[in-house]
């Protein structure tokens, strides 16, 4: 099957490699920035273009990868659905619930498949946590703490640095953990959030979210784009008969490069030394679904719900009150 990539930034490049590993052929790379499109297209002998619509509508394209800034996701998904293409969309699925609903309606109408990259569901460490919980190792889970983040991503002019576009760490980064919590423990009832969202004297975001789950469990989720460097993921699950802890800083492989001052990396992808990347696993899941082999681990409704929960967190941060879900 052939792939058109819409959005050739950091995440677009990473997904291109994963898709290629899964045997997809990259035929078109579109980006508003012609240089970004060219750089990626060259690697795969694909067409470079600034015309996203043209790339989507090419007859030889089966799948469209949506790796634009988040506010454009829904629009590109709708265009791709209308053109009858299957869609892999990076998270967050959409900037608003309405956008997400409209996009899902378009996908349903066109009878194409939409997959949203909630990749944490595929991470080996998270799968191991899940297996231990399901095996009853810690009894009944009662409290979960999740922690994710590091340096503020993106260069000085990056869309990540515009809270209106990225939603800051709560919407762009913590949505991974909000999705995983719901995946593991069901629906949240109530959410409370404090989010820093500073721009002066420097871009710094730090988000603290409390969730009360319908089953009585509690969760505290912390997202940071306030650190001077690095990236760290920590999970702690406390149960009636034990506890699980994971810390990405305790790792089989570590390396540290001197970074350029005054700007973060264009994207942050946690990485460990592993046989198969979780990003490749999500592509395999998506492709298997298209081929009719199985149902996907992430449904479009899951992705929409993650957007709803993350937006509820931001609403709580804006109003200073808990939000019922």
């Amino acid at each position: 099957m052939n792939l058109a990539i819409i959005g050739c930034g950091g995440i677009g490049r990473m997904h291109a490699e994963m898709a290629a590993r899964c045997g997809l052929k990259i035929v078109a790379c579109a980006d508003k920035d012609p240089d970004a499109a060219k750089a990626l297209a060259r690697r795969y002998n694909a067409l470079a273009t600034t015309d996203a619509d043209g790339a989507i509508r090419r007859p030889d394209v089966d799948i469209v990868l949506v790796t634009t800034p988040t506010p454009r996701h829904a629009g590109v998904v709708i265009d791709a659905a209308k053109a009858g293409k299957h869609i892999f969309c990076e998270k967050p699925f959409a900037s608003t619930v309405q956008q997400g609903r409209t996009a899902i309606a378009a996908v349903k109408k066109a009878r194409v498949k939409l997959f949203v990259g909630h990749v944490v569901r595929y991470f080996h460490e998270f799968e191991t946590l899940r297996a231990q919980i399901q095996a009853g190792k810690i009894g009944e889970p009662g409290y979960v703490k999740m922690y994710r983040g590091g340096i503020y991503p993106g260069g000085p002019s990056s869309w990540f640095r515009d809270y209106a576009q990225s939603g800051g760490v709560t919407f762009d980064c913590m949505i991974h953990d909000l999705d995983w919590l719901r995946y593991m423990f069901g629906e949240p009832d109530r959410i409370f959030c404090q989010a820093l969202r500073r721009s002066e004297p420097e871009k710094l975001d730090y988000s603290q979210v409390t969730l009360k789950m319908r089953n009585g469990m509690l969760a505290l989720v912390i997202g940071t784009w306030a650190h001077p460097a690095g990236f760290q993921v920590k999970v702690e699950v406390c149960g009636s008969a034990g506890m699980l802890q994971f810390d990405s800083n305790i790792s089989s492989l570590s390396a540290m490069k001197r970074e350029v001052k005054g700007a973060g990396p264009t994207m942050i992808v946690p990485s460990s030394a592993e046989d198969v990347s979780p990003y490749e696993l999500e592509w395999r899941d998506f492709i298997g679904w298209i081929e009719g082999k199985h149902e996907p681990r992430v449904t479009p409704e899951d992705a929409l719900r993650a957007v709803e929960i993350a937006l509820a967190a931001l609403k709580s941060a804006d109003t200073g009150r808990p939000v019922e879900l």
Partner: peptide, 17 residues
């Protein structure tokens, strides 16, 4: 504040988190 009592609800009457 949110509080829970899932962890020790068999033995405690109070919140445990």
């Amino acid at each position: 504040c949110e509080a829970g009592n899932v962890l020790h609800r068999d033995t405690l009457e109070t919140d445990d988190v």
